[in-house]
């Protein structure tokens, strides 16, 4: 028997509306997420990772439109929900850690006020109770002397501490799904390890599912069950984590893994993927990676490959086209 997924994204398309045209920055993304699983989303800067996450909860900036697709949470299409229904779901059922700290931290409220407000928005508990919980949460994300920190403002926290406050806020209500957009970029390895432990515990205890957006491949390898690689607004490869990192199929994924900086030896020059990424919303007729791909053929720049299934993996590359198919 197959488990029904807690979140199902079908052909999600997002564009930015400009004076005379639409720029399609997410060109149809599909995946499903089961309870208790972790999906890592990795990919080029500007490939649409954040826009996709904001789209799931209808939190896109004013200039953006969802131009197609479905997002089903426990069967309910979130894109068709009323503002009130969405308010019930956001935070309590699906929580988000934003890449942009100013999207979740209000500079004129103390950290304590913000945590207490979050806790009380969905649960009927007293102020004192909420304050006690807020201290506990700050302690869990490793903020020293949390009781003293409660009445401080975000500017009095360091970059990594703000990030941890946002994590605490997102985890406060024990959501079914956590969408974490680059949640640990400002954290050092030891604190990051503690945060990951915290997430793992919630995942095991309550079956929280996680969408983890990151560019840290080692991190994705360590925590994810599945990995989705985005490039130019398209899914290039999707595979179980152990497959993707040992046998990457797409040349872009291979290039990413090849660009990793090594800590165990001194390098003189880093092997970056040559060339620059495509401009979002100005799609080429073929594969968006073709201009930078060393293995590209003429076909690649003329015709966009579909996602080919290969065992438990999916890959969007003509080189992986199954033999015998007619084209």
């Amino acid at each position: 028997m197959s488990v029904s997924p807690i979140l199902e994204v079908r052909n999600l398309q997002i564009s930015f509306v400009e004076q005379n045209r639409n720029r399609l920055v997410l060109r149809g993304l599909s995946y499903s997420l089961e309870k208790g699983r972790v999906l890592a989303v990795v990919g080029e800067s500007g490939s649409g990772k954040t826009v996709h996450a904001l789209g799931l909860l209808s939190l896109l900036p004013a200039a953006a439109r969802i131009s197609g697709g479905e997002v089903r949470y426990k069967g309910q299409n979130l894109l068709a929900c009323s503002a009130e229904q969405l308010r019930q779901i956001r935070g309590a059922k699906i929580a988000m850690i934003f890449q942009d700290p100013s999207a979740s931290l209000n500079p004129v409220l103390t950290v304590g006020q913000q945590l207490i407000e979050t806790l009380r928005a969905h649960e009927s508990i007293s102020k004192e109770e909420a304050a006690r919980k807020a201290i506990e949460l700050l302690d869990k994300v490793g903020i020293p002397n949390p009781e003293k920190r409660l009445d401080e403002y975000p500017f009095q926290f360091s970059g990594g501490m703000c990030q941890r406050v946002m994590i605490a806020m997102a985890l406060a209500l024990k959501p079914d799904i956590l969408i974490a957009d680059e949640p640990t970029t400002a954290l050092d390895v030891t604190i990051q390890a503690q945060i990951l432990r915290l997430m793992k515990d919630l995942q095991q205890e309550y079956g929280m599912a996680v969408i983890f957006i990151t560019h840290n491949l080692a991190l994705a390898a360590a925590i994810a069950d599945d990995v989705l690689v985005l490039y130019g607004g398209l899914c290039m490869e999707q595979a179980p984590a152990e497959k993707l990192f040992t046998h990457p199929l797409h040349p872009y994924t291979q290039g990413l893994l090849g660009s990793l900086v090594s800590v165990s030896r001194k390098t003189e020059h880093l092997p970056a993927i040559p060339g620059n990424p495509p401009i979002a919303g100005e799609p080429l007729p073929g594969c968006p990676f073709a201009p930078r791909c060393s293995q590209a053929t003429e076909k690649c720049s003329q015709k966009l490959p579909p996602l080919f299934a290969k065992g438990s993996c999916y890959v969007r590359c003509w080189l992986e086209e199954p033999h015998g198919s007619t084209h």
């Binding site: 680059e182 970029t185 990413l256 660009s259 970056a272």
Partner: peptide, 17 residues
């Protein structure tokens, strides 16, 4: 101050070079 921590590895490599 943490200039490359928001970048994916390929862009990071380019900036570091």
């Amino acid at each position: 101050d943490e200039p490359v921590s928001a970048l994916d590895v390929s862009v990071q490599a380019q900036i570091l070079n």
